[in-house]
C-alpha cells in the first residue's frame, strides 16, 4: 500500500486536531488506512503530555490571560506550545513497521533523521539528540513524542518555525531542574527556530516539502497526497466529543494537587472560549 500524506489541520480547534491525530493513528493501526504522514498546526495552544500534571506544568492563569488553549495528547513526553509558526508532523506505522523491533526510541531516531535531513535542505545543520530532541547548536528546534500499541507505532513532533517564544515562556512552567541541567536559565535560551537558523523567511510549504523529502529518503517510500476517510472523520468526531473536550481528560489524574478545583474552573473557562 502506498503511504499517505495528509495535510489537514484545524488550527483554531486544537481539541479536534488532536482527535484527528488519534483517529488517523487508530485507522492505520487497524489496517483501515495506509501508513500516514500528517502535517498540521494549532494556534495558540499548550499541548501537554499524557502522563503530565496540568497544574504543575502549565501556568493556567497566564493561559487565560493570553487566550491560550490547553489540550492533553495521547502520547507521553513534555508540554509544548503551538502557534501558527509551529509545524507538527506525525507518522503512523502499522506494525510490523520499518523501524527495527518497532522500538519507539529507534522510531525517534529514524524520524529524527528525516527531520534532520529536511532541515539540511533548508541550510540548517541539526542533529538528533536522544531521547527525543532535535537540536541546532545545542538549542532545541523540535521535540518528539510517541507510543506503541498492539498494531501501531506512532511518532509525532513539533518543529519551531518562528514560534512566539515569549508567550511560550509565560505559559509553560519548566522545572528549574530541567533548565539548569541543560545549561540555560530560561526557556528562551534553550530553544531556537527555523527562521532564526535559516536567517531568512521560510514558507510553511517550503518546510513541509523539505521534511517530506527527508521522510521519503529515510524510509525509501513515496507518499501520495490523501484526505481523511469517512471512518477517520467519524472516529475523530467521537474522540473530540468523548475525550478531547472533556475536563476529565484535560485535567488528568493528579488528584493530589491542592489547586485542582481552581484549575478545573480555569480549564472550563478556556474550553468555553472555543
Amino acid at each position: 500500500m502506498v503511504w499517505r500524506l495528509l495535510d489537514v489541520e484545524w488550527p483554531d480547534k486544537p481539541y479536534y486536531n488532536m482527535a484527528v491525530e488519534e483517529a488517523v493513528a487508530r485507522a492505520v493501526g487497524g489496517g483501515l488506512s495506509p501508513n500516514t504522514l500528517r502535517f498540521w498546526r494549532n494556534d495558540n495552544t499548550i499541548v501537554i503530555g499524557r502522563c503530565q500534571c496540568v497544574s504543575l506544568e502549565v501556568l493556567l492563569p497566564n493561559c487565560l490571560e493570553h487566550g491560550v488553549k490547553v489540550v492533553r495528547r495521547f502520547t507521553g513526553g513534555g508540554a509544548v506550545y503551538h502557534d501558527l509558526e509551529n509545524l507538527n508532523y506525525a507518522i503512523s506505522f502499522k506494525r510490523p513497521s520499518p523501524i527495527p523491533s518497532d522500538d519507539v526510541s529507534l522510531g525517534f531516531r529514524k524520524v529524527g533523521e528525516a527531520i534532520v535531513l529536511g532541515l539540511g535542505m533548508l541550510g540548517i545543520k541539526a542533529e538528533f539528540v536522544p531521547v527525543n530532541d532535535i537540536q541546532v547548536g545545542g538549542k532545541k528546534i523540535s521535540g518528539m513524542a510517541g507510543m506503541l500499541a498492539k498494531n501501531l507505532l506512532f511518532i509525532h513532533g513539533c518543529l519551531l518555525v518562528g514560534s512566539n517564544i515569549e508567550v511560550l515562556s509565560k505559559v509553560l512552567n519548566v522545572p528549574k531542574e530541567k533548565l539548569e541541567a541543560k545549561g540555560a536559565k530560561e526557556v528562551r535560551a534553550r530553544v531556537t527556530t527555523v527562521i532564526e537558523e535559516a536567517k531568512r523567511q521560510v514558507s510553511m510549504d517550503e518546510i513541509k516539502l523539505a521534511l517530506l523529502r527527508g521522510f521519503e529518503k529515510v524510509f525509501q517510500e513515496n507518499f501520495s497526497p490523501g484526505k481523511l476517510t469517512e471512518w477517520e472523520e467519524a472516529e475523530a468526531e467521537r474522540l473530540y466529543r468523548e475525550k478531547y473536550t472533556t475536563l476529565d481528560w484535560n485535567l488528568g489524574p493528579c488528584t493530589a494537587c491542592p489547586g485542582r478545583d481552581k484549575d478545573a474552573e480555569i480549564l472550563n473557562l478556556i474550553a468555553s472560549r472555543g
Binding site: 503530565q52 493530589a256 494537587c257
Partner: peptide, 23 residues
C-alpha cells in the same frame, strides 16, 4: 514529579507524573 498528600504521617494520596513515556 511526585505529589504526595500525607495525613497523620501516612500517605493518603500519591501521584507520579512527568514527561517520561509509559504504556
Amino acid at each position: 514529579r511526585v505529589c504526595v498528600v500525607v495525613s497523620n504521617g501516612k500517605i493518603v494520596n500519591v501521584i507520579f507524573t512527568g514527561d517520561f513515556f509509559a504504556e
